Simulated scan of single mutants.
Amino acid sequence: MNSIFTSTAKLAVLMIAMLGSSITLAEIAVIVHPANDSSLQADDIAKLYLGKSKKFSNGQSAIALDRGEGTELRVKFLESTVGKDESQMKSYWSRLIFTGKGIPPKVVETDAEVKELVSRNPDTIGYIDAGAVDDTVKVVATF
C-alpha cells in the first residue's frame, strides 16, 4: 500500500507542477519596426490600443495589431496595459464602433504573423511572447 500511495503522490506532484507551468505566461514584448524611433510608455501603448491615439510619439501613424480573444497573451496584455478584461474591451469597442468613433485593432493569430507584419510596416505595433523576439523587430516595452 505504501508504494501505491508513493506512486500516487508522485503523480499528483507532477500534475500540479505541470499545471503550474502551463498557467505561467512568459513576458509579453510590445514590438515595432526596427526603424521606428518612437519612445513609448505604458500609457502611450494603452492609448494606441484604446483608439485614443493614432500616432507614435514621433508623429508617425500607428496601426495596432491585437491577438485573438481568449488567448492567455491577450488577457495578460489587456490587464497590463489598458486595465480591462476581454469582456470590458469588447463592450468598449462595441460602443466606439456603434457611434462611429473607432475601429478596433486588427486581430492577428500568431507571434510569427505579428512579427512579419511589424517587420514589413514601420507604422505597426503589436505584442508577442518575449521568447519569440528576434532582430526583425524592436521591443519598446515588456509586461
Rank of each mutant, 00 (worst) to 15 (best):
F5R: 15
D43H: 01
V118S: 03
V133N: 03
T24N: 10
N58P: 02
E69P: 12
K52P: 00
P104A: 10
V137Q: 00
K55I: 07
I63T: 14
K101L: 10
A12E: 07
A112F: 06
L25Q: 13
D43E: 12
D129Y: 01
D37T: 08
D66S: 15
K54P: 00
A9K: 13
M1N: 11
I103S: 14
D43S: 10
V140T: 07
M89Y: 10
T99N: 12
A42V: 08
R67M: 06
M18H: 06
A64W: 06
K138W: 05
S94I: 03
P122A: 10
D123L: 04
E27F: 00
E86C: 01
M18V: 09
I45H: 03
A12R: 09
V140E: 08
K138Y: 02
V75E: 12
L117V: 05
T99S: 15
T6E: 15
I23K: 11
S61T: 12
W93E: 04
D44G: 01
V108F: 08
A46V: 01
L50P: 06
K84F: 15
L19F: 12
A42N: 11
S61I: 05
I45L: 11
E86Q: 14
A17D: 04
T99Q: 14
D37V: 05
D111I: 09
A35F: 02
Y127M: 04
Y127K: 05
M1T: 10
V133F: 08
L14R: 09
A17I: 09
G68S: 12
S94L: 11
A64Q: 09
D85P: 06
D37W: 00
L48T: 07
S80M: 02
G126N: 03
A35Y: 02
I45V: 08
D135A: 12
K52M: 10
L50Q: 09
S21Y: 06
E86S: 10
V107K: 10
E72G: 12
V139W: 04
A141D: 07
S3E: 14
K76D: 09
E79A: 15
L117K: 14
A46C: 07
V118W: 01
S80I: 01
K106C: 01
E69L: 13
A26H: 09
Q88M: 11
T81K: 06
T8F: 15
E79C: 01
K52F: 04
V108G: 08
T110L: 03
A62N: 02
I4K: 15
G20N: 13
N121C: 02
F56W: 08
V118F: 00
F143G: 00
A141L: 13
F98S: 15
A17M: 12
D135N: 14
E27L: 04
E86N: 07
G68E: 13
